[in-house]
Structure formats: structure tokens, C-alpha cells
Nucleic acid binder design. Structure first.
Lengths: 245, 245
DNA sequence: TCAAAAGTGTTTCCTATACACCCATGA
DNA sequence: TCATGGGTGTATAGGAAACACTTTTGA
């Protein structure tokens, strides 16, 4: 049990590693940034210009600074490096630390899920692009796994939280909203049912205004907005919920 | 956008930090290990014997080794330090990296959720204890937040995965199982409905055997087992599910 | 024969989906 | 007035919770 023979079972880890001269590893923070563009879910990626993994797509991000927190770091790097400042949502996904995830050096990476609302168009650098999530080419390091995690997370949260607020612009019609949902979920979403589900759950409300119909006619569409623009769990317990009384 | 003036927007982070002399921080791996004991949800904690946070409870774990992965590391440390080798489930929870989470040095910590099935009793060291999760005293660093995350994660997954397999022994009666669920969820769970939900979802099956009734009589209880002992999502889409056809 | 514990049948409720139908508009 | 897209009404289905009732045992 005391394999170090120090007489102190926690000597190598408690408190912080620094107290005991434990090895230190590089730490980077990355983001899977999604936006619905042209009716499809897109990921923000950039093309690596140097080894390792030269020429492959990679997630934006970089080294954690000594004085910043993880979330703070990824916000800074997205703003500075790819000029993305309009994140409607940001949450931590996972940390990967396989010893050989980077062939050159031991590095840990914490991945975040970031969302940009539809309709805005951040000016990104020339080596950076919005890639259709469904047509993503092989990526550098373990970045493909991170994108997969992010897609699963987004998909799951669309069904039990109000996370749609982060995909949609401030105001939208139900048919627009259903297209954002379809892009993120990967299957058709009927606007008529989406409306009832989100209204029942109190996620959205009518603004009172409406959008004139286009040149092909049709009834004007009512404008809606999300009631909250921070993440809320709106459908907590599908099952095994606490007793009614 | 290029605040470093290097002409390379990703210079400080791509590839790994090591390439560019980026700062390195200590990294530790911790675990929130739950087990149902005496019908209540318990957390494995140890009492710190030295500063910082001397005398407070802390989560088991320690520094990440240079050659090991994160999950590998926490498994090793739980086995070596607190002699816990019978984890029925282990999953990553979150990574915390507030610059001042540890007053002595910059340290990141990745927390895991670990589960030990009811009925076994690992021999833990004298400074280590199973603490009722509902009566947890203030903990060192940000460990209280980690325990809270773990409880929320377990609670949520009980409702849409088969994670009960990790709380229960290999075979159990329905009333036993309902007690494990009650301990983890914090409210009553009727054995009769739990049975139907888990059978319908194909999570559990009858072994064919039963347990003789006690001295106070009663009908013998059938023994069940989980059909899988790895995590499966059994109730994916409560809503917005793909069209039927 | 009674108490205790397990298990079944049945009712009720809630929510989501599907789909037919009605409404408002432009050409 | 017709095509078009938005919105409502209604039927259906499924799952879960609640609870009364039945079964199987020990004393």
C-alpha cells in the first residue's frame, strides 16, 4: 500500500504536486466551436502549417497561461486568435491526457464546447474555416474525438435543456428554429411540435411581432425568443423522479 | 489579433506547449468514490495531516505520473493509496484549474467519479473513511464542488443509463435495489415500479433463483442481475427523437 | 390463520408525435 | 382564387407513478 516507502501514502500528491517536486506537464485548452451556417452544423477549425500533423485540421486554442483559469483561457484565445467573441454558450467537455496523444511532448488538453448563434459572421483568419461537421476530414491529435464528444453533448442537451438559445439569434420564427435544431440533431424536427414542446417547458415566448411573408405568399410567421439565455435544465427527470407529494 | 507580434497566431500553443517553452503546471487526478453503505450514499475521503487545509477532508488521488493516462493514474492511486481495486465504474467528471484553487502553487485537478458496488468492504487506511454524502463537512480546496458534481452526475445517469449495475452487487432482490437507488437519489423509489422500468428497458433480468424469506415471513424474493455491467444509455431521447420511420 | 414481504393488475396522468384541418398573405 | 407557408385541434401512443389486490412464505 505504501509503495514509495515514505510512510506517507499521499506524499506524491497532497497538497499540490509543486510541494513534492512532481513532474509538470504542458496544458492546453481547446474549443469545439459550433455554429449553424447554411442550415448545417459547422465546426471552427484551422489548418496546421507545421509539424506535427502538418496540413491537418485542428481545433482552435493554445497553452493555458499561468495566471488564468481554464474557461478564461479559452475565451481569451478564441477572441485573440480567431476573433470569435460572440460565444452564446461555453462549457467544459473533457480533458485528454494520453501519454502519446502528442508525439513530441507530454501535453494534456482540456476541450470546451462553444456555441455561436446563427446569423452572425465572425471575421476569422485565412487559415481558419467553418467546416460542415458531417464532412469533417481526419484531424490532428485526438481532436476528432473531441468533436465527437461535443456533438453528442450538444445533441443530448437539446433534449433536456434550453441550450437552443445558444444556436438561435435573439429572435426567430419557429421554422427557422426548427432548422437550427435539425442541423444540430441531424434529423427532421417538425416546427409545429417543437413549438409546443418549447412553449410547454417555458423555454420560449412570443415577442408579439411577426415577419411579413415572402414573395411566394404564406401567412406571416410570429417571432419568438428564448426566455433565458443561460443554460437551464428544463426536463430533469424523465424517470425515477421524486414522489409527487 | 496577433498580440504576440510573432506573425503566428498559434505560436504559443500549437503543437504542444513544450515546443515553445510555455509554462507548465502541476496536474493531479482525484476521485469521488461512492458506495452505498448502511443504506446511505457514502464518499471515500481522507483527513489531511498537514497544510494546506490541515485537518480538512480531501478526496483521494495525487499527481499524474509522466507516463500514465488520466484514468490509468486514478486507478493506480486508488489501488495503491486506499486499497480500492473493485471499481465497478469510473468516468471523468471535470477539470478545475482556478489559478487560486491551491494557495501554494498553480495546480490543475481532474476529478473522476468512481463507484464501488454495495456489499464489499475494501480495507482502507486509518486516516481514510466512508463519509455519508449528505453529512459531508467542508472539504479542502475545491473538493466540495467536485463531490457535488459527482452526485449530480450519478443522479442524472440513474435516470437514463444502466449505471445502477455499478451500485448493486452481482445479484440482488428488487427491494435491495430500490434501497441503492434511494440512497443515491435521495428520495423513495418504489420497488414495484423500479422493477417494471428496468425490465422494460432491458437493464435487468431474473436469475431464476430466489432468496428464502426471513424469520418474519413473507414471500421469497426473486434474484435479479443487470444484463450488462458496462455503461449503456437506455433511454436516449426523451424528446426530439428521430422520426419513427 | 395471521402478519409480512413480494409481485401483479389496473387506473390515471402526462407528454410527445402525427396528421388533418384552418388561417393569413402575395401574386 | 389559388398556391404557399404558418398555426391549431385532435387522435394516438407510450411510459411512468400510484395503489389496490393477490401470492407465498414463517410463525
Amino acid at each position: 500500500m505504501d509503495i514509495n516507502g515514505t510512510g506517507e501514502r499521499f506524499a506524491d500528491g497532497f497538497g499540490p504536486a509543486a510541494h513534492t517536486g512532481a513532474p509538470r506537464v504542458g496544458h492546453e485548452v481547446l474549443a469545439v466551436v459550433f455554429q449553424v451556417r447554411e442550415g448545417r452544423l459547422c465546426v471552427l477549425v484551422w489548418r496546421r502549417g507545421r509539424p506535427p500533423c502538418e496540413g491537418l485540421w485542428a481545433l482552435p486554442g493554445g497553452s493555458l497561461g499561468m495566471l488564468e483559469g481554464l474557461g478564461e483561457s479559452i475565451r481569451r484565445q478564441l477572441a485573440q486568435k480567431v476573433d470569435v467573441r460572440d460565444l452564446s454558450h461555453l462549457e467544459q467537455l473533457e480533458t485528454r491526457g494520453d501519454p502519446d496523444r502528442d508525439p513530441f511532448a507530454r501535453t494534456l488538453a482540456t476541450a470546451y464546447l462553444g456555441l455561436v448563434p446563427a446569423g452572425i459572421d465572425p471575421v476569422v483568419p485565412p487559415d481558419t474555416e467553418w467546416c460542415f461537421a458531417s464532412e469533417l476530414l481526419p484531424m490532428a491529435f485526438d481532436h476528432t474525438a473531441m468533436v465527437d464528444s461535443a456533438r453528442r453533448r450538444l445533441r443530448a442537451k437539446l433534449s433536456y435543456t434550453n441550450i437552443g438559445f445558444a444556436l438561435a439569434p435573439p429572435e426567430f420564427t419557429m421554422s427557422q428554429l426548427s432548422r437550427y435544431y435539425r442541423a444540430a440533431l441531424g434529423h427532421d424536427v417538425a416546427a409545429t411540435n417543437l413549438r409546443r414542446v418549447l412553449l410547454r417547458r417555458g423555454q420560449i415566448e412570443e415577442t408579439g411581432r411577426s415577419v411579413p411573408s415572402g414573395r411566394s405568399g404564406g401567412r406571416p410567421a410570429a417571432l419568438f425568443r428564448f426566455r433565458a439565455r443561460t443554460l437551464e435544465i428544463t426536463d430533469a427527470f424523465a424517470v425515477l423522479r421524486p414522489p409527487a407529494d
